[in-house]
Design a protein around this nucleic acid. Sequence first.
RNA 1: GGUCCCGUAGCUCAGCUGGAUAGAGCAACUGACUUCUAAUCAGUAGGUCGCACGUUCGAAUCGUGCCGGGAUCACCA
Length: 612
Amino acid sequence: MTLLENIEKGIKAGLAYHYNYTITKQPILITPTKKEFEGDFTVVVFPFSGVLKTKPEELGAVLGQYLIDQDSNFADFNVIKGFLNLTLSNKAIKNLLELVILAPDFGTFPANGKKVLVESSSPNTNKPLHLGHIRNILLGWSVYKIMEAAGFEVKRVQIINDRGIAICKSILAWQLFAEGATPKSADVKPDHFVGQYYVRFEQEFSEEYKTWLESVEGLQVFKQIKKEEETFEEFKSRFKNEYFNQHSSLGAQAKQLLLKWENGDSDTLDLWRRMNQWVYDGFDATYKRLGVAYDQLYYESDTYLLGKKTVEDGLAQEVFYQKRDGSVWVDLTEEGLDEKLLLRSDGTSVYMTQDIGTALLRNEDFAPDKMVYIVADEQNYHFDTLFKILKKLNAPFADGLYHLNYGMIDLPTGKMKSREGKVVDADVLMDEVIAAATANSLERGSLDDLSEESQNKIFTKIGLAALKFFIIKVNPKKRMVFNPEESVDLQGQTGPYVQNAYVRIQSVLKRYKESDYTNNYLDINEIERALILMMSQYPGMILTAANEMDPSLIANYCYQLAKQYHRFYHDCPILNAESEDTKRFRLQLSHSVASVLSAGMDLLGIEMPEKM
RNA sequence: GGUCCCGUAGCUCAGCUGGAUAGAGCAACUGACUUCUAAUCAGUAGGUCGCACGUUCGAAUCGUGCCGGGAUCACCA
């Protein structure tokens, strides 16, 4: 039984014993005591004093006394207004450290028999990964680690958007402008190589569009279609898509390519495979560097057919309906949404069709209890719709669907816009952050006696810790501002700060030659007490983080614990402690802090260096 | 316009199942390294928690209405 449960039980028993009162509705609010008051846990007794028509101070005193009498874990209490502050006995604190925190399974929960599938990353194959993907990938990885620690069996998957018009644009640009160049011949990371041709297409298309708008035909169309009050610029952006589909030569060629692809033209398919493989190779390098991996990849080119079939079956069973032009729709007006297209009038599939197929295929593969989609919040409507459709189809997993809708990342200069080249590239960003860590480290010179290889490993760990922590510490649902300068900070509320606490501990532990920390120290001071109580909250943090799918809770917890340790390290001598018992206790305490920090940061995909 | 999300210190963020005097980091300023490595610690300064009303013993937290910002409402993905 945990201490919180002890308190709750004691309060209930006390209320029954002294007031013959049984709690029905009100939850008992128990929080860690604020540091300006004395005590370890605080029970808020206001709600009961109201019901019992007792003064809060009196009720608090009665309950406090009752708890102390009944439970030897509690040594003292004080009451301020309606707040009952309880102080644990030193023995209880020590037991907490030795029996709970140092237990081998601390911070992991036994398997709960539930399977969860986490989809993340899921990039398009026409351009390299950027900052937005990094947030997605890091969230995916830490949600996986956290849910696993909480007892779930987790499968990490992606859906690769490997087909469609966007990929055809890259392919077409390569055909038109590359003159047979390859990533190797150009000496460019392969995903970036393909991305260059996507950008090239957009440039050429913009030029073409601009020229057309100024032509006789363009001006005529503008006059005909322009809405009242609409400026030329507004028209230009509104009409762009229609221009692509109806008037553009490049657009026609790209669409022609898509048609060839859908018809299985072997030359097109070969080139498509070849260019996609370049992208996959590039992505793999980035994933590896970020330290993430996936159990299974799904490709749209494999799943859209199942989606189509499902929609056709649904049509036969009248879950969906068909319009006169042959297009298939779902009516979600009863669910508070709209009508949504599922198959085009020409019978081809759309985004939604593919996602239906993908979900069903995943269910066949894993039969998960939950499916978590980590996708930016701009797609909230899409996933609302998808989940309602799957419910309509009576998918067995329909009640376990969850869209972890994280906020987009802004730059200090404003929104990221990939079409305007205003993006932060994932690979470049990692280079920069590692370079910053390297420069900082070399300046300190504390690693000079290590080989260059070991040094580089540490620089990488520090740089990536800075980057990952910077992103993960923000609540995923919130839009965040990414300042590249701050992301390479190594001081303050950062990953390296937490790493530093760990490194300090390692450095101390190494100097103590024995491995036996048993001790009879009982004179536990405030800082030590706070550290132990804080660590005791770790398993609860994991459950909360898993429940809310919020890794930022773990990041902030690790920071708080590291901060408390740094304070301890500064104020309390360890190896030079006044007695052997004290020394051993503090070593034991340090050792457990290191374990919790390391485990917690591992949940975020951040590794600890032994030195820094 | 409909729907949804967000507004906390100069900046980036915690806190939000209602609880004590709203917390961190960065930036600014002051102090602490012959010491278990200072990527650290201690301190100063910085707030109308967007605004208003309501709910109650108590509101940054809940409700309503405004104001400001964003997302979305494609036979795009």
